[in-house]
Design a protein around this nucleic acid. Structure first.
Lengths: 234, 234
DNA sequence: GACCTAGGATTGTGCTACAATCTGCTTCAG
DNA sequence: CTGAAGCAGATTGTAGCACAATCCTAGGTC
């Protein structure tokens, strides 16, 4: 794989903004002004706008013509949508892997790492370990498009966790289900693998929605209201 | 649903470029120069670049730093990837619909429209009718993210058809399988619905790959070679 | 209280300038 | 003749300005 030696200003900015949004620097629905931010990051307005575009397409921001971009405010409904799509992707990945009877090495080590975590680990670490396991399954298929779609979802999941859910399922519960999945894949049992991952994600959905703090409607901030519709998710 | 009254220049340009690429104005791998195209469409370089960005993220173009954008050259491998992802999405959609025992009205009328086509219909019409049926299923779930992902794939499928497959499966074959799917959804039989759509798409994949003209490697045009890697699909 | 209007603020778009980088050609050593 | 090094031209990357288009708010009128 060929890698570029330099990264463009836009990409750097995009990553930095993503980090700040996921870290909760901005409140959900907050308006991001071009001029102030371009000045803060010391980039041109063009560059900032390009970075905005990227984050809009990744679902972290929403854009409203002539009003600017806003931090996406997610709802329990979004959570449900995200997990439906996630289920679609991971079911397919599990079936593909089971069809080959091959558990990716990365998935095995991600499983071990996750399983090793104790109850004292921070939520951040647990979440990342859990996601890493699931990611490894998808990446293991070798399908770049499947992987890209999953990556987009991961980011949205992190945004959900930042905005409307605190806490996370216990390591023990998750690891048990992960184990069952790996076992089914190893046996080449596609039907069972699908059933296991489906149940696993359904459990996760129920848990998350139950622990979601926000109602079904987004929380608007004072001042400018977040837009109703964005072009790419409408 | 709220719609904007005006469309931005970037969006217009993006749609126009998409149309031209799918219509085969450019050859796969062809380099698109900023200055010439900005002049042709009578827009600023900024605007054109924004449109490029959109098409890159939609997978129609690939971008290479300091070299510009190129028309994406698809291969049989891409075709396989696309259909794996498509299967993931449509399986999930079928299951959701079967879980509700509800066939969307749009799917029913799309089915009727497609079924009504004769052997004299142009390929373009048949393809669009077939896609419309599948699209209706996904849209019918009401999941905007599922829908968005599917829409992206539709565009890539059209690009595949333009670049490396001629012809299309017969209406009779497809309609029969569509009918079986609707029937399973109506009965609320999730397992059967999944099995039917899986088989249907697998058949389609095999047919397409068999009829693909290009080998597994992309065809490069003379002059500037298309880039190896793009950021979003790497 | 509902509606209309003016003003201020922000984004949308085009243009120019210059830096960064890639590509291809020329040159030169072996 | 082959291949590496370096130079020159062309294209993209980024910043900054100017002005048009649009939106939001506030204030006034009925």
């Amino acid at each position: 794989m060929i890698r570029r030696l330099t990264t463009s200003r836009v990409e750097t900015l995009e990553d930095e903004l993503e980090r700040q949004v996921l870290d909760g620097r901005f409140t959900p629905g907050e308006h991001l002004g071009e001029i102030a931010l371009a000045e803060e990051f010391d980039v041109g307005r063009n560059t900032l706008r390009a970075a905005f575009d990227g984050l809009v397409r990744r679902g972290l921001l929403v854009k409203s013509r002539n009003r600017g971009v806003f931090v996406r405010a997610l709802t329990a409904h979004d959570l449900a949508e995200i997990y439906e799509l996630r289920t679609a992707l991971e079911v397919q990945a599990s079936r593909i892997l089971a069809g080959r009877r091959s558990v990716p090495d990365a998935a095995r080590s991600a499983y071990a790492h996750h399983h090793r975590l104790g109850p004292r680990s921070s939520q951040r670490v647990v979440v990342e370990a859990d996601l890493a396991f699931h990611r490894a399954l998808v990446v293991g298929t070798g399908n770049a498009r499947l992987t890209r779609a999953h990556k987009t979802l991961e980011i949205e999941i992190l945004l959900c966790l930042a905005q409307l859910v605190q806490g996370y399922a216990s390591v023990g519960q998750l690891a048990g289900e992960h184990d069952a999945l790996l076992e089914a894949i190893e046996r080449g049992d596609q039907t069972e693998a699908e059933a296991v991952i489906r149940r696993h994600l359904e459990n996760a959905t129920l848990w998350l929605i139950e622990h979601a703090t926000a109602p079904d409607e987004p929380l608007y901030t004072l001042g400018r209201a977040a837009p109703i519709e964005s072009r790419d998710l409408g």
